[in-house]
Design a binder for these strands. Structure first.
Length: 395
DNA sequence: ATGTAC
């Protein structure tokens, strides 16, 4: 941290930062996550920390928080700069999960500008790829990232849904992914020199950050196009695309969001789990919430705990075929357990906490049909995936 | 979360 170079004397007299957590007393919030909020509140220049109902501990900083400060701290955004969730309308004649799951493209395999030059998904790229970073383009990544074909189930606000072109029964593709290696590279470059300290040249960081935000959004569109083509549908423009790891200049200060979506009059898809509904909400969060809402259900267990407890509690079969009848495409057994629905909080509680604090209004729920995480072992679409890098190189 | 870090 910056204990040797406090910039406080150059700043206006400051009062201690405030911390507000938007959750009900019965909602499960780990004490470690609350402690991380207090640690963030103690940083130089910090003004206000807003914890969302999906708050949980992260690496150094809490996840599910919006943090306003006069100093820009790259570690408060994290490495996956530009990560977000986009929703694309999908029109399919048939929606049998088994058949669709088998047709998903391999989203671990990047789109290569030369080898895949004729891939129709490239049509979504207008102009240059941000930062000229083509590595990993069109890939979903790991962790909590996913691409999900879902159906609009309950519509709470028919007028609002209709303005988005949605009605009950419609299909949508939900894409949760970020900037892959690009954001990681940007944070690492800062951390190698400044550690967890602030960015001395905020404009320079912001220029790279903005590239990563654009890259993440482009990547979500590319994946949606890849999937649409593979399933025989037309690619569409997203009706929702909100980034939940970013920093913006607002009211003259740096508003960092880490696992928190912009909530100032925007529509946001708040992700449930691989086996439960997600919620499309109209967000209307004010200054107390740092103009932000939750980004998902939020982890209830660490990945290590989820793996240990999940192995005793679940079979691979029940995680691949969920209680709502959806299929999870995930050839990585460890990831399947780490991402088990029981490792997450109940999305209904997160949503009701947002509603009770007047931060958001539910518009509709989506129920998953197929959630894609990573190719299945023995996937018919790409039986050679373990060797594809080598095999696809020069002969 | 990550073409990571032990």
């Amino acid at each position: 941290m910056s204990q040797h170079h406090s910039r406080r004397e150059s700043l206006p007299p400051s009062t201690p930062a405030t911390v507000t957590v938007f959750a009900s007393p019965t909602s499960w919030i780990e004490s470690n996550a609350l402690a991380q909020c207090q640690q963030v509140a103690a940083l130089d220049g910090m003004i206000h920390v807003a914890g969302m109902p999906d708050l949980h501990p992260g690496k150094g900083a809490p996840i599910g928080a919006a943090m306003a400060s006069t100093v820009l701290y790259p570690f408060l955004v994290g490495s996956d700069i530009g990560c977000g969730i986009a929703v694309f309308p999908m029109k399919l004649k048939r929606a049998a999960p088994e058949k669709l799951a088998a047709r998903f493209p391999d989203l671990d395999r990047p789109l290569d500008p030369e080898r895949d030059a004729d891939d129709p998904a490239w049509a979504v790229v207008e102009g240059d790829v941000p930062a000229g970073h083509v590595e990993g383009l069109g890939t979903v990544g790991r962790g909590n990232h996913f691409v999900e074909l879902a159906r609009i189930e309950t519509v709470f606000e028919p007028g609002h849904a209709s303005r988005l072109g949605l009605a009950a029964g419609d299909l949508v593709l939900i894409v949760h992914s970020g900037s892959r290696g690009l954001g990681e590279r940007i944070l690492r470059a800062h951390t190698e020199v400044h550690g967890a300290g602030g960015a001395p040249d905020a404009a320079a960081y912001l220029a790279m950050h903005d590239d990563a935000v654009r890259w993440g959004s482009l990547n979500r569109r590319l994946m949606a196009a890849r999937v649409a083509h593979a399933l025989g549908a037309e690619p569409t423009e997203p009706i929702v695309d909100q980034c939940h790891n970013l920093v913006e200049v607002r009211d003259g200060v740096y508003l960092h969001r880490k696992g928190a979506a912009p909530g100032d009059g925007r529509d946001v898809l708040i992700a449930g789990t691989r086996g439960t509904c997600s919620y499309l909400v109209a967000a209307h969060a004010g200054p107390d919430a740092n103009h932000s809402v939750a980004h998902g259900a939020g982890r209830k267990m660490s990945r290590a705990d989820a793996l240990r407890r999940g192995r005793a509690k679940h079979t691979v079969e029940e995680l691949r075929r969920t209680p709502v009848g959806s299929l999870v495409v995930c050839g990585d057994r460890q990831l399947l357990f780490e991402e088990a629905p029981t490792a997450y909080k109940r999305i209904e509680q997160v949503i009701s906490d947002l509603v009770d604090h007047d931060l958001a209004t539910p518009v509709a729920t989506t129920v998953p049909l197929v959630t894609y995480k990573t190719p299945d072992i023995g996937s018919t679409s790409r039986p050679d995936r373990r060797n594809h890098r080598r095999k696809r190189g020069r002969p």
